[in-house]
Amino acid sequence: PEEVRRLVEELYRKGVSPEQVKKILKKQGIDEREIEKVLRRIG
């Protein structure tokens, strides 16, 4: 979803590592598979 992409990109631009991005967003209840999809697209 758009909102997940925005959150991931925001953290990524701040220099947060992909592993940390995953941890942070998982705590917020976001599906890990969604996060990984976005990270793959960015990375």
Score class of each variant (00 low, 15 high):
D31G: 06
V4T: 07
L39F: 03
R40C: 04
P18T: 14
E32G: 05
R41Q: 15
R33A: 13
V38T: 05
R13Y: 14
L25T: 00
R5P: 03
R33E: 14
D31A: 07
G43D: 15
E32P: 08
K26I: 14
L39S: 02
L39D: 01
G43E: 15
R13D: 05
P1T: 12
S17F: 05
K37R: 13
V38Q: 08
R5L: 12
L7P: 00
R5D: 09
I30M: 11
R41C: 08
Q28E: 07
V4L: 15
E3M: 11
R13G: 06
K14D: 05
K37G: 05
E9W: 15
R33L: 12
K23D: 10
L25K: 00
Q28H: 07
K23V: 13
K26Q: 09
V8S: 01
L11W: 05
R33I: 09
E32V: 06
G43P: 10
Q28F: 11
L25I: 02
S17Q: 08
I30N: 02
Q28R: 14
G15F: 04
K37E: 15
R41V: 15
E34Y: 04
K37W: 05
L39H: 01
K22V: 14
E36P: 00
L7G: 01
E34V: 13
Q20A: 12
Y12P: 00
G15L: 04
R33K: 12
Q28P: 01
K37T: 07
K37P: 02
V16N: 09
K26F: 09
E2V: 09
E2R: 09
K14W: 10
P1F: 14
V38S: 05
Y12L: 14
L11H: 15
D31V: 03
E32H: 04
K26S: 13
R40D: 15
K14S: 10
V38D: 01
E36Q: 03
D31E: 07
S17N: 08
E32Q: 06
K22H: 08
K27Y: 09
L7H: 04
I35G: 00
P18F: 10
G15N: 05
E9M: 15
Q20H: 09
P1Y: 14
Q28I: 13
R41G: 15
P18E: 11
I24A: 05
E10S: 12
G15A: 03
I42R: 06
L39C: 03
V16H: 13
R33C: 05
Y12M: 11
E34L: 14
I42V: 08
V38M: 11
E3G: 09
I24F: 09
